[in-house]
Write a protein that binds this DNA or RNA. Sequence first.
RNA 1: CGCGAGGUAGAGCAGCGGUAGCUCGUCGGGCUCAUAACCCGAAGGUCAGAGGUUCGAACCCUCUCCUCGCAACCA
Length: 732
Amino acid sequence: MDIKNISTENKEKTIGRYLITAALPYANGLKHIGHLAGAYLPADIYVRYLKAQKRDVVFVCGSDEHGTAIPIQAMKEGTTAQAIIDKYHPIIEQNFKDLGIAFDFYHRTSAELHHETSQEFFTMLNDNGDLEVKESEQYYDEATSTFLADRYIKGTCPVCANDNAFGDQCEKCGSTLSPDMLINPVSTLSGNSPIKKATKHWYLPLDRHEDFLREWILKEHKDDWRTSVVGQCKSWIDGGLQARAVTRDLDWGIKVPLKDEGGKVLYVWFDAPIGYISATKQWALNNDKDWKPYWYAPDTKLVHFVGKDNIVFHCIIFPVMLKLHGNILPTNVPANEFMNLEGDKMSTSRGWSIEMDDYINDWIKKEPIDGKEIGGESMADVLRYYLTQIAPETKDSEFTWKGFQDANNSELVNIFGNFVNRTFVLMHKLCKSKVPPFHNDIIDNTDKQLIIDIKQGTDKITSLLEGYKFRDALFEVIDLARKGNKYMQDKEPWMVAKRETVDGVLSVDGQKSIDNSLHLCLQLTANLAILIHPFLPFTAGKLCKMLKVVEKMLEWQNVGRIDLLKVGYSLREPQLLFRKIENEEIEAQLTKLKDKALAVNTQKESKKVEDIKVEETKALEPVAAEIVFDDFAKIDLRVGTIVEAEKVPKADKLLKLSVDLGFETRTIVSGIALHFAPEDIIGKQVTVVVNLAPRKMRGIESNGMILMAEDTAGKLHFINPEGGVNNGAGVK
RNA sequence: CGCGAGGUAGAGCAGCGGUAGCUCGUCGGGCUCAUAACCCGAAGGUCAGAGGUUCGAACCCUCUCCUCGCAACCA
């Protein structure tokens, strides 16, 4: 299929239907408000807008429940992987509901239908010869009869000598590793040393599709995708695309649908995005619809909402899969950057985050005080408001509780809520609680200007929403309320009432002037209800009730009209849309955040101490399996002297050393910068492994490894001969 | 030279070739229908730095400095 034809077709044809997806949340824990702001909220706003436009839209999402992290977490918690996902899937689903994220269907990847869909996908690609099969040697645990995925192997880090490095990375020094690089690898399942065994794996050869990706992303979408998205993709493509393993040796996941491949599952990155397809299928089944046009028809507009860490999956890998499978490609991937929190990166594991669940409990489900309602759905809208207002659409942004309070108090309460409230109060006082008529004979420039502002404002908001600029669109909605306040100030109906009342009777002209100003303010309120609806759905619902109109009024075709409310219609008593947030509430949240982070970190510290203790007792016993002398003799150890030392730029932990080994001077990169200042170690004698395969770190080739001893305090010490010997002396 | 994004009033951000703009905050005034709300006005910036292109640069080009991300979990 020629991709070029499809997309030009797309531009010319009208859009038949939309399929909107939001990144699948990983079901290993609670999700925080950064996740919400990054993907789910913008997706929901867009979907609500499209639905108001009466377009054919399906919005799908679901829990991502495979991958190694879940069984590992289960192991830590002494439970099963199934129990973990069964715990988090319903919580996450409910959290989204409470915050007004209205998926048409929220699926889960452990569902039977998803397994079938993913297997069919794999089979088709495999049958068409679109996958490559490679055999390689991998670590295998004989005790449990399983191949060990990266995170199931621990060992000594070749860079910093940390004993608890994982097969993919050392958490201590941050080096990226592969299982082969670990010294003394140990299976985390049994504690045994694993053996090497040949295993077969399927790969998706991305390199075959480089030309297609360059054409599709870097040329066709150069201008209509966000610059950061195109930039990331370019960086990936220029970095050289490589074949990516599609299968893994693991027992948690979707079985590879081939005979004789019992212990293999599909790699989680492969099955997760297919979750969008299976969710669409399940939605269709439940609603008696046909799912196929959403994934095959060229007039379908597919939009993926994700965070920036997901760009490559949704712009490079998944599109390649879709293309090979004969599906349509995404029209856009409006990825957001990250949202920081009170000056630091958000992180659940470090306790520096606000979980959606926390917010719901602390604000939405807050009990009334003295019979006064202070929680409720409108608090969900407050969060939606602030997160949209600071959405990291073009660069990282920052959530602060002070900012949250300011946005609520000065914009939602003082500008938007207050405009609606004063309009209602005045209407009840001066217009007998009815929508007053509009007298065309006394229309003035102020009235005309407001009508123009409503029309222009709504057009602007519509085009901003079409262009995924939700932050700007929301600003324009508030700005319209601001214009309403100004209009009211200019017309000052309360003054007219005073001025034109003689002997307790209001003049006819006075009443006509008041009628006009409140008529327009009420029509503007109705427009605001429609415009705010995608952003603040609960508030829009409340407004409908106050205006005594059905929700059908919220359809986008009504926007910009100034005849939405019928003259003479009697309206309800006003109800406050938002409440002020007090300083004490904000301080309480700040304290809570700091306490949580502190608690998590102390827990971690004590765990570290425990780990060290375990190591100490371990050290008394043989650490590794017995080796014969020949094995030891393979390691060539020499004494050398550090002659030069400098910090490696842009690396916190690395020092670049020149070591005189007598027969030559070598460059060695060592992860010791946190322990030693470069100038202090020049001239020191050290022991070096000289026949270790060279390895590049930060672009510098390291030819050897300095031996270090680590004490219980975690401090590093050089291992050097007493008294000093000649450089190049062998160590036996 | 690893790559990408960014550095603009006290804070948070927009503008991306033609008199520096918005929101919050601060100060002064007006108004009182409204959730001590609303409206008007003012102060506050050599647009990170240095070169260059141009009649003209925050904006385009080059270099330098700084921040964040790609790079545990994680949108």
